[in-house]
Amino acid sequence: MSVSEAARPVPNGPAPTPRGGPGGKTLRKDRWWLQPLVTVVVLVLFIAYSTWSAFNKVNYFHDPYLSPFFSPCLAASCPEQVRWASLNLMPWISPAIYILVFPLGFRMTCYYYRKAYYRSFWQSPPGCAVAEPHKKYTGETRLPLILQNLHRYFLYFAVIVNLILAYDAVLAFRFPAENGHHGGFGFGVGTAVITINAILLAMYTASCHSCRHLIGGRLNHFSKHPVRYKLWGIVSKLNPHHPKFAWISLFGVALTDVYVRLVASGTITDYHWIF
């Protein structure tokens, strides 16, 4: 090429920062804003739906299907088939309220969701190499965000909830007698929905970073703990997929609830076969 193209200053370029480089929010030209935007939209929709569902204490059970938002069902108002306790602190509240804090806390303190909502809701930062709007930043060094370190306790509860959901999945194979037909072992569309949901939630829990640490991450001598090393290896293979499981299981819970509600309200029929 010729040297004809002389250097020319750009009149409206960003002003330098105190460090001497270009200022401005970002020099990125790609659609860095898309991912946080999608995250906000999906999470807001999920929060709106789950809040509506948690407070809507009808049509959450259609024997043998129980919505995962209400499992374990601990209120006195729960159907007998799925009642684990008879809490009656405030009879007017929905049974979902008693247990909501556990899955909510597990997801709120999850290392993946933290990344997702810090980026999208709190814009800290909105994208890599995109300046955040806050004047001050202290991260997770003080209250309330230092409480994110309690993630492992929510994991303990999540494991219990996962076991109960697995039990619910087993119960979903046991159909009641109805319309003159005998009940018993069977399989329905709802059985598949509830079983898949339990598997997805179990995968989300098993791939959790805290789970990985508790299984073997805290060890420095894997060679002295071969079984834990093996298990740590399995969880380490699942761990990179944690974000995927986080989203799929989120959709899974909501769709399972939708399915149970549609069947319970008589909007759709559950196709099932009793053997």
Partner: peptide, 13 residues
């Protein structure tokens, strides 16, 4: 970016 740490600007080539 062309600059010396205190001032600078983008230059097109």
């Amino acid at each position: 970016w062309r600059g010396d740490g205190t001032t600078g600007q983008f230059v097109d080539y």
